[in-house]
Nucleic acid binder design. Structure first.
Lengths: 137, 137
DNA sequence: TTTGTTTATGCAACACTGTTGCAAAAATAA
DNA sequence: TTATTTTTGCAACAGTGTTGCATAAACAAA
């Protein structure tokens, strides 16, 4: 049996200061983070290019996954859960239009079938108000 | 009753040569088109800035709608159908990972409910193989 | 620990996407 | 036709993301 997305031994990605600092941001935040936020947070500690390259490596080995948020910005999040029973691998996310917060949803989304087409993956972004911002109305 | 997205009289958008040329591309193609394609197609006839501004105006008045494709590129498509019975206004699209073709789906997608959150909109992109590319395997 | 090998980083440069201000041109209204 | 409003082209700029290359850091082996 093959693991579909998590490389448990971290592959050949070295645990450098920069990699640790970046993963630390994800651990502390616990949510998806836009790349631009990572650059403002870590830009003084490491080069912009380094951030992009670490993100690519960590996504490739399965520690992170990426998607596009409601404003077209690329976001990354930790890839903790990987259900191998899912027929189609989908990444549902929710983004609050008030505060911008993004959460990864672990729910399964039933995908529509389209005649003659083979659906292999899906990107679903739900947009609305989070618990905090619903209360502010 | 209020129309949710189509401005039938075209509002105050003037029918200039550039607007006609751009809408012509959508009519001929009948599918969603990435902005970069529009620029390569129309870039010799009009300025890049003009293309971006026309797209903004036409989206604002409801003739076009936009979304992000699998590679993070912004795409536009004609907004012909607008079901006012839908509780949540969603734009499902399908993109072929082989040829890149994008089609707008008129099907309804049932959106998951998330406790404490208000879901107002959704962006769903299905990725796979289109009818043509399925046959090529 | 020390050495050698591999991977990662910083820097500069570049390409691409998208926006803004302003003067000139085109479209519409009178 | 003239006056008014919208649209366009151009130049400049900001943001995002990539590449090549020399240097630095991490790792493996002795």
């Amino acid at each position: 049996m093959q693991h579909c997305c998590i490389n448990l031994d971290m592959g050949t990605v070295r645990k450098t200061k920069s990699v640790k600092a970046l993963l630390d941001v994800f651990s502390k935040k616990g949510e998806a983070v836009p790349v631009c936020d990572l650059i403002s947070t870590l830009g003084s500690q490491m080069n912009r290019t380094t951030i992009y390259r670490i993100l690519q490596r960590l996504e490739k080995e399965g520690t992170l996954h990426s998607f596009t948020d409601k404003d077209g910005q690329r976001c990354y999040a930790k890839h903790e859960v990987c259900s191998s029973t899912k027929e189609v691998h989908s990444h549902p996310h929710f983004q609050c239009k008030e505060c911008g917060k993004i959460i990864c949803l672990s729910i399964d989304v039933s995908l529509p079938k389209i005649g003659g087409h083979r659906v292999e993956a899906a990107e679903l972004l739900l947009i609305g108000q989070c618990e905090t911002c619903v209360g502010k109305d």
